[in-house]
Structure formats: structure tokens, C-alpha cells
């Protein structure tokens, strides 16, 4: 018990929490992308995948609760660390140059906050399917395919045919890319799994993976905006 209390109280412990939860969320981001890209295999693949995920609430809900817990701890540690950091320098500099640091590393709090807003919107948009938030005037809940499954393909095509919504999704993914270009390598540093040999590789790999994640996710709204899947609207 004392060990756990120490982890939550100490500076390094909070970074462990941020890194571990960040790693969990990072894996989810990759898994979610792999699942979503099935939209390019056509309505059958993505609708079958959606029905499969929804078919087992005993697994779905623990996964959802686990993700929420990780998100909560990630945000809690970020808030706590940021408040302490602010308090550590009550009087700032007249001239200040952040030498040697990347833009991404200095703006983790901002990129993270906007990503959080995006996640909330995304959940209300496609998971809770709140009609007045999708800006298309259509009710996604009534979209059903020929096999009586929720028609995710049609939901995506209708949802992303709105330029504002697609734009916001692409913006959210750009910020996720920025966030991960630092975070995906920094989490190994926080956990002590990095040294001078692996560091350049990890830093470059993080940037490549972040960019691939951005391209992968953004390709869905972008493709739909350019006309992919329009035939289901007819």
C-alpha cells in the first residue's frame, strides 16, 4: 500500500503512471486504427467487425472501463504534474529561449487537452450517436444493413460527408500525431527503458509511427470527402 502511495505522490511515480497509461492508450490507438481501416474492405467487413465488437458485452465493457480508467489516470497525472511545474517557477524570464526542445514536447498539455475534447465529441458522435451533434440531420441509430446489423459503413459515409466534422476529425488526428511524436518515445524514457543507444532510434520511430497513425486515421474522412462509399447514400 505504501509503495502505491509513493508512486502516486512522487514526481517520478506520476511520470510512471503517465507513461504506463499512455502506453495502454497508444496500443488502443493502433488497434482501433487496424479495426477502422476495414472500412476500405467495404460495408460487409466493417459491419461484421462492428457486430463482432458489440456481440460480447462481457468483454466490451471491461475494455471500455479499462480505457476510461487509463484515460482518467493519464489526465490526472498530466494535470498534477503541470500544476507542480507551474508552481516551480513563480517568476518567469523576460527573455526565454527553449533551446534543444521540440515544439511537440513543449505543447503536450495543449495537444492533449484538444485530443480530449475530440475524444468526447467522437464518443458522442459515433458511440452514443447523439443526432444533433453529427450536423447531418440524420439519425445514425436507424441505419441497419441487409443482415440486420448496425450499418457502420453508412454511418461513416453519412457522418464524414459533413466537411466540418471531417475537418475536426483530421485536426484531432493531427494533434494526436503531434502528441505521439513526443509521447511514444518519451514514455520509454519515463519508465527508464531508454539509453543513448536506443534513444535516436526510439525518437525517430515515434515520429514515423505518429505520422502513420495520422495518415491511417485521416484517410477515412478524407476518402469519404472525396467520394468514397457515396453509392450507399442512393
Amino acid at each position: 500500500m505504501k509503495t502505491i502511495a509513493n508512486i502516486f505522490a512522487s514526481s517520478l511515480g506520476k511520470k510512471y503512471i503517465m507513461a504506463v497509461t499512455g502506453f495502454g492508450l497508444f496500443l488502443f490507438v493502433i488497434g482501433h486504427l487496424a479495426g477502422n481501416l476495414q472500412v476500405f474492405l467495404g460495408p460487409e467487413a466493417i459491419n461484421r467487425y462492428g457486430a463482432f465488437l458489440q456481440s460480447n458485452p462481457e468483454l466490451l465493457w471491461p475494455a471500455r472501463i479499462g480505457l476510461l480508467l487509463m484515460l482518467g489516470l493519464h489526465i490526472w497525472s498530466a494535470a498534477k504534474v503541470s500544476l507542480e511545474n507551474r508552481a516551480a517557477r513563480p517568476e518567469g524570464y523576460a527573455a526565454y529561449e527553449p533551446v534543444g526542445s521540440t515544439y511537440a514536447s513543449r505543447t503536450m498539455l495543449v495537444s492533449g487537452s484538444i485530443i480530449f475534447v475530440f475524444v468526447v465529441y467522437h464518443l458522442l458522435h459515433y458511440t452514443a450517436q447523439v443526432q444533433y451533434l453529427n450536423l447531418t440531420g440524420r439519425d445514425f441509430r436507424v441505419f441497419v444493413d441487409l443482415k440486420d446489423r448496425h450499418d457502420i459503413f453508412k454511418t461513416l459515409v453519412v457522418g464524414f460527408s459533413n466537411g466540418w466534422v471531417s475537418g475536426f476529425y483530421i485536426l484531432g488526428m493531427a494533434l494526436l500525431c503531434l502528441h505521439l511524436s513526443h509521447g511514444a518515445s518519451s514514455m520509454f524514457q519515463s519508465l527508464g527503458w531508454r539509453n543513448d543507444v536506443y534513444r535516436p532510434m526510439m525518437e525517430n520511430l515515434a515520429r514515423v509511427v505518429a505520422l502513420l497513425i495520422f495518415l491511417g486515421y485521416s484517410s477515412i474522412p478524407a476518402a469519404i470527402l472525396f467520394g468514397y462509399g457515396r453509392e450507399v447514400l442512393r
Partner: peptide, 9 residues
């Protein structure tokens, strides 16, 4: 002191 955010400055 503050916490590390691995900026590398």
C-alpha cells in the same frame, strides 16, 4: 522543483 517532461532543453 518541477517534473520532467523530456523536452531535452
Amino acid at each position: 522543483f518541477g517534473n520532467c517532461t523530456v523536452t531535452g532543453s
